[in-house]
């Protein structure tokens, strides 16, 4: 790793770690401390169950949202880096490294909380708890070894986080190419246009109800790793894992292309 990439990665990682900490703190304040204070003030303290509140976080969803927003933020960091003589591609590389590291680190925290706090409080065995994660379709595929299944589940989650992060990176890098005004226009118009297109598509398709969708269906089954007559939990995670990794790589590549065109706005 070159000295510039190391310096940039270190800077970015420490900033993101700080923001993650602030995020967790905000979570604690909003969902625990504030309700506690409200309960104290209104005299409802007897109805307030601290343990139940603490046991109900979905930290995984929070991490996904956090990584997405974090990676949408592009221009402000770019400004500081180009002022300090850091090339766009170094910024991109540092972001990718930070995303991977933060996903692993974040999943470790999520896992510890989920299996250490959430599962016992909801009377779930660890294997049962695993069956309620994004990995549920594949939870039993690798056999009965719990450690192996947990590890596979964690890897699957990490890849999902990376995908969400690269999607944020792509959206952020793309939007950063435009002025504030055009950015808002895109944010408002694009979902609307997409929805309209979908509607038009559906109304067109409904006219051809005898059209054979079995090819599309087979393709989706292939993507999620659905084997013939298998029950949930026994799906094969190989193809979806590869698909998610490929998607992440494509997003990251597109984000790279966009970030190459970043410039300081007048």
């Amino acid at each position: 790793m070159s000295t510039k990439l190391r310096a940039t990665t270190r800077y970015l990682f420490l900033e993101q770690l700080k923001q993650l900490g602030q995020g967790y703190l905000a979570l604690l304040v909003i969902f625990v401390i504030l309700p506690l204070l409200v309960a104290l003030v209104t005299g409802n303290i007897t109805n307030f169950n601290l343990l139940k509140t603490v046991g109900n976080f979905s930290l995984g969803a929070f991490l996904a949202l956090f990584l997405f927003i974090l990676n949408v933020t592009t221009y402000d960091v770019f400004k500081l880096l180009i002022q300090n003589g850091i090339a766009r591609r170094t910024y991109w590389a540092a972001r990718v490294i930070c995303l991977v590291v933060l996903s692993v680190l974040g999943e470790a925290i999520v896992g510890l909380y989920y299996y250490g706090v959430y599962a016992p409080m909801h009377n779930l065995t660890t294997q049962r708890a695993l069956s309620q994660t994004a990995y549920s379709l594949y939870a039993d595929f690798l056999g009965k070894n719990l450690a192996v299944n947990l590890l596979a589940g964690a890897v699957f989650s990490i890849i999902l986080y990376i995908l969400i992060g690269t999607a944020g990176m792509l959206i952020g890098s793309f939007l950063a190419l435009f002025s504030k005004w055009v950015q808002w226009l895109i944010i408002i118009i694009l979902p609307f246009a997409g929805f309209s297109l979908l509607m038009v598509g559906i109304s067109n398709v409904s006219g051809y109800s005898n059209y054979d969708f079995s090819g599309v269906e087979a393709f989706f089954k292939f993507l999620i790793g659905y084997p013939q007559n298998a029950t949930a939990g026994l799906f094969n995670p190989t193809v979806p894992t590869i698909t998610l990794l490929l998607l992440s790589a494509v997003m990251a590549a597109l984000a790279y292309y966009c970030s190459q065109h970043l410039k300081i706005k007048q």
């Binding site: 070159s2 510039k4 402000d76 400004k79 500081l80 180009i82 002022q83 003589g85 850091i86 090339a87 766009r88 591609r89 170094t90 190459q260 300081i264």
Partner: peptide, 19 residues
């Protein structure tokens, strides 16, 4: 896109790029 060159120059500009 050249770190070595960009790291060997500094531009103090009217626009503020610092947080």
């Amino acid at each position: 896109e050249n770190n070595a060159a960009l790291g060997n120059l500094y531009l103090m500009s009217e626009v503020n790029l610092y947080p």
